[in-house]
Computed example of a mutant assay.
Amino acid sequence: MKLTVLASIIAGIAIGATGCSHEPKKAQYTVEQYLADRDLMNKKVEECANNPGELRNDPDCINARAAASKDSWGSLRDRPPVGLNSPASTEGPSSQE
């Protein structure tokens, strides 16, 4: 009887240990792959937004959101200058009244 109990305990520990040693989930698509297929990106972003409690840290959700963010802003290198150093406008209230 003691042997049966001991075998059951060992079996339980072995089964429990295998459940704890899983590898983290890897993303199915990269950011660049999502950017290349906007339909796939939009579908994944919508799926992730619909279930943020479970999918917030999902690698594909992270990649799809990064791709959507990059797609909406684009690269700063590709954007025209902002023009912060342009001369002040001559229009507006006059200092002479």
Rank of each mutant, 00 (worst) to 15 (best):
T90I: 09
D58F: 08
V31Y: 11
Q28P: 14
Y34H: 05
S72M: 09
I9W: 05
C61K: 04
D71I: 01
P81R: 12
T4G: 02
A88T: 13
A64V: 11
C61F: 00
T18W: 01
D37L: 00
K70W: 13
Y29T: 07
K26E: 04
E47S: 08
E46C: 01
L76K: 08
S69T: 08
R77G: 12
G83K: 10
T18A: 07
P52A: 02
K44P: 15
D58C: 10
Q33T: 13
I62M: 10
P80I: 14
E91C: 15
R38H: 03
M1D: 06
I9V: 14
V5D: 15
K44S: 06
L35F: 03
S69G: 10
G83S: 07
M1F: 14
S8Q: 12
M41Q: 09
S8H: 08
E47I: 08
R65Y: 00
G74R: 01
E54S: 09
M41Y: 01
L3R: 02
S89T: 13
G83I: 15
S8C: 14
L6N: 06
L84A: 10
P59C: 07
K70A: 06
D78G: 02
T4C: 07
G74D: 00
S89Y: 06
V45W: 04
K2A: 12
N85L: 01
C20W: 07
P81V: 14
G53D: 10
I13Q: 06
K26D: 13
S72A: 09
P24C: 07
L84R: 08
N50D: 13
D71Q: 08
A17Q: 00
I62A: 04
G19Y: 06
L6S: 07
K70R: 04
L40H: 12
T90V: 15
L84F: 15
V45P: 05
V45C: 07
Q33G: 01
P81F: 04
C61L: 04
G53A: 00
Q96E: 09
P87S: 04
R77C: 11
A49F: 05
L6H: 13
A64L: 03
P93D: 03
A17H: 00
P81T: 08
N63A: 11
E46P: 09
E54D: 03
N50F: 13
S75G: 04
L6W: 10
S94C: 14
T90D: 10
K2N: 14
L76V: 06
R79C: 13
S75K: 09
L55Q: 11
P93K: 04
P59D: 09
